[in-house]
C-alpha cells in the first residue's frame, strides 16, 4: 500500500508573528515545525505502512526551510520526500498549491493520500480536499479513525454533535483530526538514517507545468491585531461596585 502525505511546514504555534516593512509576515527568525495536524497524517501513514507494507512519500510545497520538517517525517519512518519549490509559488493560494500537489502525486504510485484537516497558520482547511477534486478522488475530512482493507476504507469523521462513518473505495483522500493517533517521536536511529533518504526538489517545470498556475484569489493583506485595551477596575463598597459593574455590562459592554 503506497501512501502520499501532504505536509506543510508551519510556524511553531508559540512563534511571535510580526510583519516586515512590505507588510508581509516576517519569517526570518521564526521556529518552524510540521503542521501538527499533518503530523497525525504522517503517523497514520506509517501505521498503514507497518500493516500493509509499501512506501510513505512526503509531498510538500515550500521553500528553503521546508526540508527540515520533511526530514523529521523521514526520521519518523517515511521513505522519501518530494518538495516542490519554485519562486513563483511564493504567491500561491490554496488552489495553486492543490494543483501542484495533485500533479506531483499523480506521478507516483498511491493508494491513499493523507493530510492534516487544517494548517495551523492560515487555517484555510482547503488544500487536501482540493487535491482530491483535482485527482477525481473521494475524500473524507476531519477523520478520527481510519480502518483500511484491501481496496476500501472505513473512516470515522467528526461532525457537529457526533461522528459519521463513511466507507469509500480506494484510492481516496483523508484529512486527519486531532485524536486520530499519537504521533511517534523520531528516534535516534531514524534521525541518523533520514539524511540518506531520497528528498527530491522539483520546480514547476520539472513537474511538467508549461506555465505556472495563477492564483484565483486576490492578494492577501495582513495586519496585526491592535493592542488590547486595559481593563476597568471597579473600586468602592461591594454594593456600589456591583451596581456599577451591572451598569457597565449592560450599557458599555452591552452583554446583559
Amino acid at each position: 500500500m503506497n501512501i502520499a502525505v501532504c505536509l506543510k511546514q508551519t510556524f511553531d504555534t508559540e512563534a511571535k508573528i510580526s510583519l516586515n516593512s512590505s507588510g508581509k509576515i516576517d519569517d526570518a527568525n521564526v521556529t518552524r515545525c510540521i503542521n501538527p495536524y499533518d503530523e497525525y497524517a504522517v503517523e497514520a501513514g506509517l501505521k498503514l505502512k507497518e500493516k500493509f507494507g509499501g512506501e510513505v512519500t512526503i509531498v510538500s510545497v515550500g521553500g528553503e526551510k521546508t526540508p527540515e520538517s520533511m526530514r523529521t517525517a523521514l526520521a519518523m519512518g517515511a521513505d522519501k520526500g518530494i518538495l516542490i519549490k519554485d519562486p513563483v509559488l511564493e504567491q500561491a493560494d490554496e488552489w495553486v498549491v492543490a494543483e501542484v500537489l495533485a500533479k506531483a502525486i499523480s506521478q507516483i504510485p498511491y493508494d491513499i493520500i493523507l493530510s492534516g484537516r487544517i494548517a495551523v497558520d492560515d487555517q484555510s482547511a482547503q488544500v487536501a480536499i482540493r487535491v482530491a477534486e483535482a485527482l477525481g478522488l473521494p475524500s473524507v475530512s476531519t477523520v478520527l479513525a481510519l480502518e483500511v482493507e484491501e481496496n476500501k476504507a472505513v473512516a470515522t469523521r467528526e461532525i457537529d454533535g457526533g461522528t459519521e462513518v463513511i466507507e469509500v473505495p480506494l484510492p481516496a483522500v483523508f484529512t486527519a483530526q486531532k485524536g486520530l493517533n499519537e504521533p511517534r517521536y523520531p528516534n535516534m536511529m531514524g534521525i541518523m538514517k533520514a539524511k540518506n533518504k531520497e528528498l527530491k526538489v522539483l520546480s514547476l517545470n520539472d513537474l511538467g507545468f508549461a506555465e505556472a498556475p495563477a492564483r484565483k484569489s486576490g492578494e492577501a493583506v495582513y495586519s496585526l491585531p491592535g493592542a488590547r485595551k486595559a481593563g476597568i477596575k471597579i473600586q468602592g463598597e461591594p454594593a456600589d461596585s456591583v451596581r456599577e459593574l451591572v451598569r457597565l455590562l449592560s450599557e458599555e459592554a452591552k452583554v446583559i
Binding site: 527540515e68 523529521t72 517521536y185 523520531p186 535516534m188 534521525i191 541518523m192 533520514a194
Partner: peptide
Amino acid sequence: TEDHVMMRKMVRDF
C-alpha cells in the same frame, strides 16, 4: 548540524 537540531528537538519534546 541539522541532525543535532532534530535530536535536540526530539529529546526535548520527549
